[in-house]
Amino acid sequence: MANNILTQNDIRHVDYKDIDLLKQFVNPHGRIMSRSKSNLTAKQQREVERAIKRARFMGLLPYIQK
């Protein structure tokens, strides 16, 4: 089992409203971390990606950060 934030905290669903959780998967510029950095499984990475994109659309996370 991959050793990452989601499995360590037993998180099965990633919610777009969990900004504090999602912020751990974006870099200081606001870009989504690659799987090699996030250490997530492919399924988890897809979930996180979907949640971040929803949060961006709803103005909870920035698209870019200067």
């Binding site: 905290n9 669903h13 919610d15 751990q24």
Partner: peptide, 8 residues
């Protein structure tokens, strides 16, 4: 409930 209970 999809929101996680984890807090940084």
């Amino acid at each position: 409930d999809t929101r996680s209970k984890m807090r940084p």
